[in-house]
Design a protein around this nucleic acid. Structure first.
Length: 257
DNA sequence: TATCAGGCCCTAG
DNA sequence: CTAGGGCCTGAT
């Protein structure tokens, strides 16, 4: 998603299509046909889920989680393309967001199909498994993917030769799907959880990275109450992550100045 | 110059 | 099973 929060204008490419979104205060406008809205974007943004009821179910005694959820009110866990998310999170490891975006953009421009909107905007779709499997290691390294290049190459091949069947994954339960994903070279516990959450919408998946780990140690020394939030702890993880990354970051910045 | 950023793989013990 | 080293690269 590319965006300019100042003027409330966002754009993204998903499932081969380009979408522009405009926001004026509480009003959101999707610039697309009614058909695409109903067939694609409603599902993609998980618009039929009531996130408000999830937030209301949070333990009122848990002031940290309540604050995090209030801060992240409006966040939605997207239902993104499985293949795209696998590669994107292979790239994300030991990496920062700025470079992740650049790597993915380079992959799309180098190996993805170029398209144009009716209004003449050029964009690139995410490359297919075939396209990435055909890339040489030298070419992948040239995309600044670093040591993740071999993860991407081998993963693309594992998909092509049927070692892992992408089409079968959505039918699996969370635990099974996670184990299946971890057969892919370069996919460990954390990345598998991200894929489960962002592409397969397994909302029990609770990715634990360095930020979350830090919060869990500081706020939940007795352990996070997963039992209380069966079926949607992954959504709460999003609130925690966003809160820790932005809110507490701002506090640190202010202190320094 | 050293460290770190939304980890993972591999090898030892 | 757990610990620890190595790994691409760019920013600070």
């Amino acid at each position: 998603m590319e965006g300019n929060p100042e003027c409330g204008r966002y754009s993204l490419v998903a499932f081969g299509k380009y979408l522009e979104i405009l926001q004026q205060n509480d009003q959101i406008t999707f610039v697309c046909s009614q058909e695409d809205m109903d067939a694609l974007w409603r599902h993609y943004f998980d618009l039929d889920t009531d996130y408000g009821s999830i937030i209301r179910n949070i333990d009122a005694q848990d002031t940290y989680l309540c604050s995090a959820a209030a801060y992240g009110n409006g966040i939605r866990v997207l239902k993104q393309d499985l293949w795209e998310i696998i590669i994107s999170f292979l790239i994300s490891q030991q990496n920062n967001i700025k470079r992740i975006r650049k790597c993915i953009q380079t992959l799309c421009e180098t190996y993805g199909e170029q398209k144009q909107t009716q209004t003449g905007i050029t964009y690139y779709v995410f490359p297919t498994p075939q396209a990435l499997a055909e890339a040489s290691m030298e070419e992948l390294y040239a995309c600044n993917l670093g040591y993740r290049s071999r993860y991407i190459r081998q993963t693309a091949e594992s998909i092509l030769n049927g070692e892992v069947d992408l089409a079968a994954l959505p039918e699996m339960d969370y635990i099974t799907a996670k184990a299946e994903l971890m057969k892919l070279y370069g996919v460990g516990v954390k990345v598998a959880d991200c894929i489960c959450l962002y592409a397969l919408h397994k909302t029990d998946a609770f990715p634990i990275d360095t930020h979350i780990n830090h919060v869990l140690a500081a706020q939940y020394p007795e352990g996070f109450p997963f039992d209380r939030y069966v079926g949607y702890s992954g959504i709460l993880q999003q609130y925690i992550f966003y809160y820790d990354l932005n809110h507490s970051g701002k506090i640190e910045t202010r202190r320094k100045k």
